[in-house]
Write a protein that binds this DNA or RNA. Structure first.
Lengths: 366, 366
DNA sequence: GGAATTAATGAGAGCGCTCCCATAACTTTT
DNA sequence: AAAAGTTATGGGAGCGCTCTCATTAATTCC
């Protein structure tokens, strides 16, 4: 019951290969009687068209790739990527796409995987998590005709198609919240200087501070790498300089920072207020109620697939960009009542939470 | 530079299609001179063979599927699956395989995905996370010629190919550890009665208790669903009956349980000892040092791919099974010094930690 | 030195499908 | 009633590759 081909069904139904093909693909030009007969036989035999053959002629596989560079063992410890992957996978289900997942651990992996990705007849398009390690892939992608979309703003200007979250605005929201609550010595734990997301969040922090006429004290700023431990260590560096509030560029780091605060015998938020970034499930987990900036991670994955699919179907040659909004989620780690309420100038754009802004156009022909 | 085919390269090199094919596939019967010439042209033009065409004739895609049923939103909150996925992805890189990931959320997804999986010419073989929801898929798989491997022992006896961790022995190790330390009122938090893993761990617990001549007190046993919250709630149910030690069937539930203990103003391990299961990174995370049973999750994924690859290459028609060992990891949550050391009969098999046991044979031709 | 062996190459069929075009059987139009 | 259109179906080419088999050239054998 397994190695049937179109021709076998045709013979069984007493029609031609073409007619069976029409039935399988839902073409209208088939007689009612014939269609029924053919469908019954397909049903009975459990026939399924062969993907490879179909792909060969249609030049489509309905498979899209998702490439995630995985620097350390700890990569999958951060729930961000699983959640993103989930969003992408769901969108693929909805759009009848198959998802090929590429986890790039080291340079060998990249060398091994890159040709497989570029090779025609395998992938219809590709989603690449932005990272310094992926520059080689992007170069190859740019000189090929493969539709691609970068997940997160790339450093390379040539990589024109990307989707990102408005990190500057998100960081502004976080910082303004601390400013409004009247905190005086506001610190920050940076994600990782190499990441564009961290750069943008740092920028947003600075803008918000400057907008309130405040200086950023360098001793209150430390760098981590988005991991729990790095948040813990960064907080330990900052702690001696008496911050009264800290903006951590990820929830995981915020959790690490909280641990450092508690170990120092201090209390969150009484002694030090904390804002995170991501709004991962664990931020609202029953033991912690972290004030944070919500990123629509799953939604991000879904939008990415939709954009890519659109590029595949319509062969768009213009630059495709999409920037997703963020939302401040107020919980328990910043002090529920205001200490010294202060009015801070708010730009009206801050009202629209989770707004998504699409820019499409310009820059033809890569 | 993109739509080159074998024939174009052949023309450029002044040889036949066949010769280029031989060069590409590393056949020996090609003249040294010719080979060099062809290779240079391939290099220069950036030619890559078309996968679909190759698959069509070779009946191989070098793509394997990984199917994970995802019951709740919280599925990817549990780091178990990301870690497993990672192991599978790495093994795929090593074996030059492409990984197609299928996340099955609901029944619609299953209906949508199943035919795509079964369809020939798409996947060479498939890894399916065992789950009650997947029984439909397994049925289809059994009546097809697609090589498959279940991840975890399936309830269905017909599903003969699987890889699993020795859950009974793991649970025994955990329980014996508590018995040796002299705990008297030992409780358990069950994962989820539907899961075979939980059933086996429960069985192991019972066997260890019986082996030490101890009764299992039903009031000290509660059921969760492998989530943090469920561990917390289960512990709250058990707490009134004064347990002095609890075996939680997952690290995540152990963490929830620990939270419940602390909220009740009690201390781990002074008042209540705790053993987890999994040895996820967070079990040894800097704030908690959980005594637990180590499952080789990543290794599990790697072995699974290797087994499947073997089945694909050698078309094995016999039942393939592999059971991986577990290891007790002693940390801080069971009391470092013995309270009332007790000697418990240990079977000698317990010495070999992380031993892997392979059983292959029997049951031909499904 | 002619037959047999080996190495290097080319020609052709075919993997299972889609898509274009031809044909045949009806309708509709003028 | 003949021309034109419409609908249902079949035939054939071709997608880009691999693989078997035939062919030729170079080598070895007795």
């Amino acid at each position: 019951m397994d190695n049937l081909k179109l021709e076998d069904i045709a013979k069984l139904a007493g029609v031609s290969r073409s007619t069976v093909s029409r039935v399988v693909n839902g073409s209208t030009n088939v007689g009612v009687e014939t269609r029924k007969r053919v469908e019954k036989i397909i049903q009975r035999t459990g026939y399924h068209p062969n993907m490879a053959a179909r792909s060969l002629v249609s030049q489509r596989t309905n498979i899209i790739g998702l490439v995630i560079p995985k620097t350390t063992q700890a990569f999958f410890t951060d729930p961000y990527f699983p959640q993103l992957t989930q969003g992408v996978a769901f969108a693929c289900n909805d759009l009848h796409l198959t998802l090929a997942l590429f986890l790039v651990g080291n340079e060998e992996d990249e060398a091994e995987i890159t040709p497989r990705i570029i090779r025609r007849g395998m992938l219809d398009g590709i989603l690449v998590q932005t990272s310094a390690k992926m520059e080689g892939l992007f170069k190859r992608l740019l000189s090929s005709s493969m539709p691609y979309l970068a997940l997160g703003r790339p450093n390379d200007e040539d990589v024109v198609n990307y989707i990102d979250v408005d990190n500057i605005r998100g960081a502004k929201q976080a910082t303004r919240h601390l400013l409004v609550l009247g905190y005086k010595r506001i610190g920050m734990i940076i994600g990782s200087i190499e990441s564009a997301a961290a750069t943008d969040r740092t920028e947003g922090f600075k803008q918000a501070m400057a907008g309130a006429g405040r200086k950023v004290d360098p001793v209150l700023v430390a760098e981590g790498d988005f991991s729990e431990v790095s948040g813990y260590e960064a907080m330990k560096k900052i702690l001696p300089f008496n911050p009264d509030a800290v903006f951590a560029q990820s929830d995981i780091m915020a959790l690490g920072a909280m641990r450092a605060v508690q170990e120092a015998g201090l209390n969150v938020p009484r002694d030090i207020a904390l804002v995170g970034y991501d709004d991962l499930p664990l931020a609202s987990g029953s033991s912690t109620k972290l004030t944070t900036i919500r990123q629509p991670i799953t939604h991000f994955g879904i939008k990415a697939v939709e954009m890519l699919k659109d590029m595949i179907d319509n062969g768009t040659k213009v630059a495709n960009r999409m920037i997703l909004g963020t939302e401040l989620v107020v919980r328990d780690t910043c002090g529920s009542s205001l200490k010294n309420p202060v009015s801070v100038q708010k730009s009206d754009e801050d009202e629209s939470a989770l707004r998504s802004l699409e820019i499409t156009g310009g820059m033809t022909d890569q």
